[in-house]
Simulated assay, not measured.
Amino acid sequence: MSRWSDWGKALLDVIAPRCCAVCGRRLSVDEQVMCGRCNLHLPRTGFELQPYDNEMAKMFWGLIPVERCVAFFYYTSHAPESRLIYDLKYHHHPEIGYQLGHMLARDCMQAGFFEGIDMIIPIPLYKKRERQRGYNQSVEIARGVAEATGLPLKKDVVERITFGGSQTLRDRWQRTENVEDAFRLKDTSITGHHILLIDDIVTTGATICSCAQELLRAGNVKFSVLCLGLANRE
């Protein structure tokens, strides 16, 4: 980064100070989204070191042809780090998704996670819900991953055609029923490709499975999965 860019960022931080999305402390020029302390204490999963066999990957075994799975951190409702997700989804901060996606991708790149992956497909939102929010948080995460990796981002391969309400308060079986037949394949050119599916939070994997099963209609498709948070179900 040039000296003038550094000066510009420093000036912008004086005019419009940025704050840590977790603790609210003012960020330094070289910090993004989180301050150094909150970043250090983020409950990372470390799944990038064992992407083929971890507790998230096991959710999809026998359901979809899954290769590798990584979640950035363990997500617990109302924990300090949950503010990252609340602000991303409900407080109109799409930049949090992009920046966290970029951070997650850099961690995974060091472990060779992206080798053999052909494209990125974010889990789509129902169109009405996306209009209400103004963006799809999974697309914002995927944009950060695509920027870091150079992988193509495909947003129009599959669409969500039903929305039965939030998954938040549903149990495993209700979540599965809620997203059954919720997606429709629009582009069959993905045949024979290794797809990276990206979502914000994975709890039971029901939404990922429903979307993947529709994508499988294209034929000879395999998947890896990347998300920000793996929900703590205890």
Rank of each mutant, 00 (worst) to 15 (best):
residue 133 R to H: 06
residue 88 L to R: 11
residue 10 A to K: 14
residue 45 T to M: 07
residue 196 L to M: 13
residue 5 S to Q: 14
residue 9 K to Y: 10
residue 87 D to C: 02
residue 8 G to M: 12
residue 20 C to A: 04
residue 132 Q to Y: 09
residue 141 I to Q: 03
residue 209 C to S: 13
residue 187 D to Y: 03
residue 88 L to A: 10
residue 105 A to G: 06
residue 97 G to F: 04
residue 118 D to Y: 03
residue 113 F to N: 03
residue 4 W to T: 11
residue 158 V to E: 02
residue 193 H to M: 15
residue 141 I to L: 13
residue 157 V to K: 04
residue 166 S to F: 03
residue 196 L to W: 08
residue 191 T to A: 14
residue 181 D to L: 00
residue 196 L to R: 02
residue 163 F to H: 15
residue 43 P to W: 02
residue 24 G to V: 12
residue 135 Y to V: 03
residue 234 E to F: 07
residue 164 G to A: 11
residue 158 V to I: 15
residue 113 F to M: 05
residue 224 S to H: 05
residue 17 P to R: 08
residue 75 Y to P: 01
residue 124 P to N: 08
residue 72 F to E: 10
residue 200 D to W: 08
residue 15 I to G: 00
residue 168 T to W: 01
residue 29 V to I: 15
residue 192 G to L: 09
residue 99 Q to C: 07
residue 14 V to E: 14
residue 23 C to R: 02
residue 211 C to R: 07
residue 213 Q to W: 00
residue 22 V to L: 00
residue 134 G to M: 05
residue 63 L to G: 02
residue 8 G to P: 00
residue 13 D to M: 08
residue 187 D to L: 03
residue 185 L to T: 05
residue 41 H to D: 14
residue 190 I to G: 14
residue 130 E to Q: 15
residue 232 N to C: 08
residue 50 Q to G: 01
residue 128 K to L: 09
residue 30 D to W: 03
residue 100 L to D: 04
residue 27 L to M: 06
residue 88 L to F: 05
residue 140 E to C: 09
residue 90 Y to V: 00
residue 83 R to V: 02
